[in-house]
């Protein structure tokens, strides 16, 4: 609408040679309506369906489904496995996001300095996040197998004690976070690289004239200027990490015990394996709300750090 209104004087100016000065431009917004309606329905219908499920006792296979109000939500609050799943989701998120932002920033800075075989280096670096999660999961299962894998073989060569890796209740979360970091750090690095290449050069020139050290330039110029880029990376990775599923499902299925059973894995199990769709929907809507909360906070942070 605003675009059309802003365009009006221009049209008038163009047409201002004297023919029909008061002619209104055609209103074309309605042409976007079909796609807008389609998108709205694509979001609203599944969401509405999930909300209805979460307020019902819907169990696949049952002939009758009853409305049960907020019972699934009260059940959730009393379910220790829900809280365990939430705790693991948040722990994994914090571990992975910190690692990926720090390493992504470092890698981005390095890539920015590469002058030889630039395209080749970038192509190699982005290859992990182009691989399907199933391939990555299977690859790491083989590498980290405590009896047959290459990881323990290498430790043995270095006279170090072997590790249980994904089979250890203490190590499983850091190991999964590291695998995800291996896969997604190059993605963050690419965003950082893009951000670095848009930074104003005059600020750096001024700092160099003033004799500011490289460390201070990084801390007081580069890092603040990269703020919006880093927050964008954090938003994108947060959405992925909070609904972390595929890699865990392939490598540990939430185990050993419940040590890596994130909220997403637990909901999947309740909904798809146990056919308890009502309860699973309640948990998924709660997770969606949490993700939206994170995105809201980070979006506001992005506004705060924008320049």
């Amino acid at each position: 609408m605003s675009a059309a209104v802003e365009r009006a004087p221009v049209s008038a100016a163009v047409a201002g040679t004297g023919s029909k000065p008061t002619q209104k431009p055609p209103q074309l917004m309605w042409m976007a309506a079909p796609s807008l309606i389609f998108v709205a329905l694509m979001v609203a219908v599944p969401l509405g369906y999930a909300i209805w499920f979460s307020l019902s006792d819907f169990r696949m296979g049952n002939a009758v489904t009853k409305f049960i109000g907020l019972s699934n939500y009260t059940r959730m609050v009393a379910d220790p496995l829900f809280w365990n799943g939430l705790k693991i989701t948040v722990l994994l998120y914090v571990l992975a996001i910190v690692l990926q932002l720090v390493l992504g920033l470092y890698l981005g800075l390095l890539m920015n300095r590469v002058t030889v075989l630039k395209q080749l280096v970038r192509t190699i670096l982005i290859s992990p996040f182009l691989m399907p999660p199933v391939v990555i999961g299977m690859m790491w299962i083989v590498i980290l197998d405590p009896s047959l894998g290459a990881a323990n073989y290498l430790l043995e060569l270095m006279h170090l004690p072997p590790s249980d890796w994904l089979a250890s209740t203490q190590l499983v979360l850091p190991v999964v976070a590291l695998i995800d970091t291996w896969q997604w750090t190059p993605f963050v690095a690419l965003l950082v690289l893009g951000g670095l290449q848009t930074l104003p050069t005059n600020v750096y020139e001024a700092a160099q004239i003033d004799g500011v050290s490289r460390g201070k330039i990084f801390l007081h110029i580069t890092l603040p200027l990269l703020g919006p880029t880093l927050v964008t990376a954090a938003i994108l990775r947060s959405v992925d990490l909070l609904r972390f599923f595929d890699l865990i499902y392939i490598t540990t299925q939430g185990g050993p015990g419940n040590a890596s059973r994130t909220l997403n894995i637990y909901s999947y199990q309740r909904g798809i394996e146990f056919l308890d769709m009502g309860y699973a929907s309640a948990m998924m809507l709660t997770l969606t709300t949490i993700i939206l909360g994170f995105v809201f906070v980070l979006t506001n942070l992005k506004k705060a750090v924008s320049w």
């Binding site: 009896s147 047959l148 249980d164 994904l166 089979a167 185990g255 015990g257």
Partner: peptide, 11 residues
Amino acid sequence: PPGVSNYTFYQ
């Protein structure tokens, strides 16, 4: 074997 808590037919 070590890590048996994750073992299934495959391993």
